[in-house]
Write a protein that binds this DNA or RNA. Structure first.
Length: 291
DNA sequence: CAGCCGTGGAG
DNA sequence: TCTCCAAGGCT
């Protein structure tokens, strides 16, 4: 089975099985799509729905967000995780307001220059919002291709040149078709060709899948790095920032001590939050979200 | 560039 | 319970 057949089958599958996600609606603006892409970085779809709806209602344009205090963006981020994304989204909105006439830029290089926009997110915005032809290589697409074309259960930790070359072979020539393939292959990875328990019986391309043909061999590459969380600085930062988010006024050192008793780690994490711009000093032993 | 950066749900 | 991992980006 050739690549164009794989593309055709996956796109047809998508037309029937795609989830109804608000940022995919016809009236979704590039900004709404951009917000969804920031929130979806390392965060599951079902957890993004609610915050996304609130966010785009409150800040329907990049300028609306840019005109708000950065701390409000951090507060509205809630418990989505990786709150630096909220800050970068605010910074990106500011850049769009100041340098792009308030409109999300169409050019891939302009997109890449925005804070928090890397190769994946730039390609995703250009593809989903502006229907351009780009390689949208997220973890889902990488897994689909590693199985279908390489017979491997998982892709390597970071994309290689060879992997990109392979992915380009699947990318249709016509931009609209390429955009459909991008979203469809991502959806297949999210719903069927999943990391944990793939549903091969529901897959439209098992007959083209090397991994399936070889009996779904287990991952034999380098051990996948676990993350760990308890007691880490990430947990500490999260606990401190949660205190900040829950208060409309500056919080005290005592408030932070209550949230994380261990002093040296608390101090280190508070300093890192300040360095990141997520927290700012607000007077003697007082701390607040940024203005 | 390997390590870091949150959080919560599923198996 | 514990492990895995979810539309990455940055340094």
């Amino acid at each position: 089975m050739d690549r164009s057949t794989v593309v055709r089958r996956v796109v047809r599958w998508y037309d029937q099985e795609a989830r109804d996600l608000p940022w995919r609606h016809r009236d979704a603006t590039p900004w709404m799509i951009m917000v969804s892409e920031f929130m979806l970085q390392q965060t599951p779809v079902e957890r993004v729905r609610g915050p996304w709806a609130s966010w785009v209602e409150r800040w329907p344009t990049p300028t609306a967000l840019a005109d708000a205090p950065a701390g409000e963006a951090v507060r509205a981020w809630g418990r989505l995780g990786y709150p630096r994304r909220a800050l970068r989204l605010h910074q990106a909105a500011t850049a769009i307001r100041d340098h792009h006439d308030g409109q999300v830029p169409r050019g891939i290089d302009d997109l890449l220059a925005l804070p928090g926009v890397g190769s994946y997110t730039a390609a995703a915005i250009a593809s989903f919002a502006f229907r351009q032809r780009h390689l949208v290589l997220d973890t889902n697409v990488r897994r689909v291709l590693s199985r279908v074309a390489q017979g491997r259960a998982h892709p390597d930790p970071t994309p290689t040149r060879a992997e990109r070359d392979l992915a380009v072979e699947f990318l249709p020539t016509r931009p609209e078709r390429a955009a459909r393939w991008a979203v469809a292959s991502m959806e297949l990875g999210a719903l069927v060709c999943t990391a944990r328990s793939p549903r091969c019986e529901a897959c439209p391309v098992t007959s083209a899948c090397v991994w399936y043909a070889e009996g779904r061999p287990a991952w034999d590459g380098p051990p996948r790095r676990g993350q760990g969380y308890d007691g880490t600085d990430r947990q500490c930062r999260g606990a401190l920032l949660a205190v900040l988010r829950s208060s409309d006024e500056p919080v005290t050192d005592a408030d932070l001590e209550a949230a994380w008793p261990e002093a040296s780690q608390r101090d280190r994490c508070l300093a890192s939050l300040v360095a990141d711009g997520l927290v700012v000093p607000a007077g003697d032993a007082l701390w607040s979200l940024p203005r």
